[in-house]
Design a protein around this nucleic acid. Structure first.
Length: 220
DNA sequence: AGATAGATGGAT
DNA sequence: TCCATCTATCTG
């Protein structure tokens, strides 16, 4: 199972995956275009670096669950928990394209927000989907109102070969670079995004990060 | 107990 | 560039 692997391995493969939230107001589905990997206890930038707390507890559980936390006291950010049960790794969902429910997403984000900016940025993404703290620990693979699924192109017959072909296509357009807003371990290229995609958030290096490698590079 | 940095986004 | 103002952690 893909999500049972460490976050740096899972993150690039989640590009193009679909996240759907169905509520009484309607359905919004997004296609992930930008993610970041956080490797848990061994990663100084991870919320789990200093062990389990009431906030990050879900990260230590089984993969496929959602970790929602409050950022800077006002924004919700969402992660997909990865790795085996007991290992706290997660993938932060940074940006996505709204592919279903554009009107509902805009009603949550603001009338004048451009389509491509509806879910551009981790907090915008959760707002467009209507995700908040009440969704923390939800199983994204459990067939509930909030679900994560592979790209449609990967398929109706979700065979290993079909999925592998889709991932290969994605990797051709994928770029990697340092994580955004992270001062620790700023040298690891654990941000992954679809190269040239207009829904990817603008790059900003942490003001405290040391000088490092170039911000972007197309993956080979 | 108080200070502060942080996986931010939007207005000025 | 500044503001809003939650959490976990560090400092006195």
């Amino acid at each position: 199972m893909l999500l049972g692997q460490p976050a740096p391995q899972v993150a690039p493969r989640l590009l193009g995956w679909l996240l759907t939230h169905e509520t009484e107001a309607g359905i919004v589905t997004v296609e992930l275009t930008e993610v970041e990997a956080y490797a848990g206890e061994r990663d100084p930038a991870s919320h789990a670096f200093r062990g389990s707390t009431s906030r990050n507890e879900v990260m230590f559980g089984p993969p496929g669950r959602l970790y929602v936390y409050l950022s800077y006291g006002m924004h919700w950010c969402a992660n997909v928990v990865t790795g085996p049960d007991g290992h706290a790794s997660a993938v932060l969902l940074r940006a996505a394209r709204v592919v279903e429910g554009v009107d509902l997403a805009r009603s949550r984000r603001g009338a004048r927000v451009l389509d491509r900016a509806l879910a551009r940025g981790p907090a915008c993404l959760t707002q467009a989907l209507g995700i908040n703290s009440s969704h923390n620990t939800i199983d994204l693979l459990g067939g509930g109102p909030l679900r994560l699924a592979p790209p449609r192109s990967a398929g109706l017959s979700a065979t290993g070969t079909a999925r592998a072909a889709s991932v290969a296509d994605k990797s051709a357009q994928m770029a990697t670079g340092p994580r955004v807003g992270v001062s620790q371990a700023a040298d690891v290229p654990w941000r992954f995004w679809l190269y040239g995609d207009q829904t990817v958030s603008a790059y900003k290096r942490s003001p405290r990060a040391p000088a490092g490698p170039p911000a972007t590079g197309v993956a080979t």
